[in-house]
Design a binder for these strands. Structure first.
Length: 134
DNA sequence: AGCGTGACGAGTA
DNA sequence: ATACTCGCCACGC
């Protein structure tokens, strides 16, 4: 990580802050839509979802998932290769290895193991984003 | 102003 | 596990 303590912030739109927060999530980890908003102390899950839908290329949208670790079917399929590459802990029924064709539309991230817990530096950035809102 | 829609979440059956 | 409800809230019509 680089200079996380001082991002140039001007006032942020909430949607923009949510995208920046999403970009803090490290590979292999994930956080729920509601969790992301919670870390910013603003907005809610629906706003986080809306922000991800319009997020610029390069944003790791697959690291932001539903509270149960899933994503909408279409997105889940596109997310699968990323999870494989990042070794993201997935939840699978012991008997049913994976789920479906290419990893499956209904696979889920195992948030119990993969949940992102911001470290000190990351928390500082989140605080900066929070204070730079509006 | 209304009203439908959505990359949500929790609860209930 | 599926299929509903509600509550939520920003957007666009």
């Amino acid at each position: 990580m680089e200079d996380l303590t001082q991002w140039p912030p001007g006032p942020f739109e909430l949607s923009e802050a949510l995208v920046l927060a999403a970009q803090l999530v490290p590979p292999g980890l994930a956080v729920s839509y509601g969790g992301l908003a919670g870390l910013l102390g603003a907005g809610g899950p629906r706003q986080a979802g809306r922000a991800m839908s319009g997020a610029p290329d390069g944003t790791p949208w697959w690291r932001i998932v539903r509270a149960d670790g899933s994503l909408p079917p279409s997105l889940s399929v596109r997310a699968t290769p990323h999870y494989r590459e990042e070794r993201t802990p997935l939840k699978g029924h012991p008997g049913n290895p994976t789920a479906g064709p290419d990893g499956g539309p209904h696979l889920r991230v195992d948030l119990a193991r993969a949940r992102w817990e911001p470290d000190e530096a990351e928390l500082a950035v989140l605080a900066a984003l929070r204070s730079g809102l509006g």
